[in-house]
C-alpha cells in the first residue's frame, strides 16, 4: 500500500497537478494558499482574534456560500427552463413533479435565495454595529451597498421567472414604481414637459415594451441568470480583496 502511494506520488501526472510534496509545516501551509488560484485571494495567515465568531458572526462568508449554492443550483435548473410565456410556468411544474431531483433543486434555489437576502442584511448590520465601515474601509462599505442592491435585484428578477401570478404582479408593481420615478418614468413629475412617454421611459427599457409580456420575461431572465451574477462576481472579488488590503477582516480592538 505504501509502495503504491509512493508510486502514485512519483507519477509525472500527479506531480504536474500538485507540483510539490506537502508537509504539514508553516512554509508548506503558506505555499498551499499562495499556489492555489482559488485560495490566493485569502490571506495566508490571519490573527487569532479575526476568527472570533462572536465578533464577525461569519455572515459575509455564509452569504458567499449561499451565492455559490445559488449559482450551482441555478445553472442546473436552467437545463429544464424555457424563458417563454408559453412554457415557463409548466417548466416549473415539470421541475416540481416530474424531473428527478427537480423539486429539491428548485427548493434549494428558492430557500438559498431567501437565506442570502436575510444573511446579507445581517452581515451589513454586523459591519455597522462593529463600526467596520470606518476608515480605511469606507470604499469597501460602498462596494457592499452596491452588492446588497444587486442581491435584492437578483431576488426580484428571479421572482418573475416562474411566470405565475405572484411574479407577474410583483413585476407589474415594481416597474410601475419605476414609471413613477421623477425624470426616469412617464408618471413622474413634469414628464409631459420632458416628453417622457410609456414608450421611452425606464419602465420601457426594463420591460422591453410597454406591457409585462414575453420581452419582460426574457429580460428579467437574462438579468437574473447572466448579467447581474457577472457584475456581482466582479464586485465580490473587489470586496474580498479590499477586506485584505484594508487591514484584514475586522476584529475586536484588544
Amino acid at each position: 500500500m505504501k509502495n503504491l502511494t509512493e508510486k502514485v506520488k512519483k507519477n509525472p501526472i500527479w506531480k504536474s497537478i500538485f507540483r510539490r510534496d506537502y508537509r504539514n509545516n508553516v512554509r508548506d501551509r503558506a505555499l498551499a494558499i499562495f499556489g492555489n488560484v482559488f485560495l490566493h485571494l485569502h490571506p495566508v495567515q490571519v490573527r487569532e482574534s479575526a476568527v472570533k465568531l462572536r465578533f464577525t458572526w461569519g455572515m459575509g462568508g455564509i452569504t458567499f456560500f449561499s451565492f455559490i449554492l445559488l449559482v450551482i443550483t441555478g445553472v442546473v435548473l436552467m437545463f429544464y427552463y424555457h424563458p417563454s410565456i408559453e412554457q415557463a410556468y409548466s417548466d416549473i411544474k415539470d421541475l416540481e413533479f416530474q424531473v428527478p431531483y427537480g423539486v429539491i433543486l428548485r427548493n434549494m434555489h428558492r430557500w438559498a435565495a431567501h437565506f442570502m437576502v436575510i444573511v446579507v442584511m445581517i452581515h451589513m448590520f454586523r459591519v455597522f454595529m462593529t463600526g467596520s465601515y470606518k476608515a480605511p474601509r469606507q470604499f469597501n462599505w460602498g462596494i457592499g451597498v452596491i452588492l446588497l442592491v444587486l442581491t435584492f435585484l437578483l431576488s426580484f428578477t428571479g421572482y418573475l421567472t416562474p411566470w405565475d401570478q405572484l411574479g407577474f404582479w410583483a413585476i407589474t408593481v415594481g416597474t410601475n414604481m419605476g414609471a413613477a420615478t421623477p425624470l426616469l418614468g412617464y408618471q413622474g413629475p413634469f414628464s409631459e414637459y420632458l416628453h417622457i412617454t410609456p414608450y421611452n421611459d425606464i419602465r420601457f427599457a426594463l420591460l422591453g415594451g410597454a406591457q409585462v409580456g414575453a420581452n419582460a420575461l426574457l429580460r428579467s431572465y437574462i438579468w437574473h441568470c447572466v448579467a447581474i451574477p457577472l457584475i456581482s462576481i466582479i464586485l465580490m472579488f473587489v470586496h474580498f480583496w479590499r477586506v485584505r488590503k484594508d487591514g484584514g477582516i475586522s476584529r475586536p480592538q484588544k
Partner: peptide
C-alpha cells in the same frame, strides 16, 4: 443604452 429600447413591438 439605446439598445434597450426596441423599435418594433410585438404588442
Amino acid at each position: 443604452l439605446r439598445f434597450f429600447y426596441p423599435r418594433v413591438l410585438f404588442e
